[in-house]
Design a protein around this nucleic acid. Structure first.
Lengths: 128, 128, 128, 128
DNA sequence: GTGGTCTAGACCACA
DNA sequence: GTGGTCTAGACCACA
């Protein structure tokens, strides 16, 4: 299979369900373009084996991502990344990064840090 | 009750367990000092009613936060915020903000944004 | 349980999956108001027993209807019909009846019947 | 190929099996006479290519429609529409339109519409 | 082989 | 008791 390493990591001990963990990581891979538009995804069985989880769980993940519009599946053929180059995806990317930024700002402030503290931190983390 | 509005919001439809949602928000309120050291928390029943959830859930939350060292409970009196001005708390705050920053940086980059994009975004969000 | 007889009938031999059969009938019960707004639905286990199917199948049905906005579920409490008296539901009802009418008209014509034939048929069926 | 455009449309995302979707549309084309008696149908390969599905699926469809009496196949020559002008076909047409009407009436009523509402709707749709 | 549905049953979170 | 997640495994439709 020519798919790149998906680089999906699961925390089986987390309260966050593993299906949600996979969904979030796949969404990010698609939005970021690391999974190119039209690309065939790992088959349900392959991904299940490689993550050592049950095929049903992967099937649920794919079904829900299909409903959200991130991929399409076809009987007997496989699952494919939808076109992720359009303006809707670009907009979705913007929304996500803004949400992340807002969360970081809000929590950071709640912990007693100023915007400048947070910016300094980002630069510092970037240098590492 | 002299406690300020706790400003805890729950998403009942989320896959993230309600108890975890409450714990995370209480941790943040304590770390940030918005719940001052020594302050008495809402009683289990009060919080349960005000969040429209079962007292068992609140009891579990308090029990676990006590184990983590965020609260102490005194038989028959209630639960109280531990001293949140010490160096351990300060260190904990640093760890959390670094984790948040790392996450923001990682996800932001994955979505195709540079550190400078992210910093610009933080400034922009700060001005609003 | 005070729920009225749901009057859901399944055809286990159909190519149409039973989960889809249930979904369609529940949608209709909700849109028609026969399941009143806010009403608690049969529990997953109750409905599974009464239809002699697996609870997982009912859970899937409820989950998908929740995503479509027909009901909401709460951990440990149950599943509830959403407010079905609003204008959106009225509009949805209109859309559905128009689709049905269009389909009837199109297929009827394809079979060689005129609109008047179809109207006559409706009256005749109504008298029975 | 002199066959008219078959005008068969498939919904690959539907829970309704693709083979059933094709069968139903072919039945209607034959019953309606749009596929004239004795007419040669598309070859299995042609139809498969034009619908972007697997030849096995088309073969299965043709085999089942032959069993139902809608087609006949002649070794090495192809599939042909049976005579659709006889009384049996006329009767079949009647049964189908009655079923459609019954369904429209039942669902329409369930949604809160009267027979007169439905008749008015049919007239309105006919004018468009 | 690939996706989709369904059953059976364990286990957890919440009421 | 009630919903939610997950595993294990059968069986079907489609390629």
């Amino acid at each position: 299979m020519s798919l790149p390493d998906l680089d999906i990591t699961l925390d089986f001990r987390s309260a966050w369900p593993i299906s949600e963990q996979i969904k979030e990581q796949l969404r990010l891979l698609i939005l970021s373009g690391r999974l190119p538009a039209g690309e065939q995804l790992w088959s349900i069985r392959q991904l299940a084996v490689s993550l050592t989880i049950n095929p049903n769980t992967v099937a649920k993940v794919y079904r829900e991502l299909e409903q959200e519009g991130f991929l399409t599946s076809r009987q007997g053929k496989g699952c494919f990344v939808i076109d992720n180059t359009g303006p809707i995806i670009a907009q979705e990317r913007d929304i996500r990064v803004r949400n992340l930024g807002t969360g970081f700002l809000r929590e950071g402030r709640a912990l007693g840090f100023s915007v400048n503290d947070l910016i300094r931190l980002l630069k510092e983390l970037d240098d590492e």
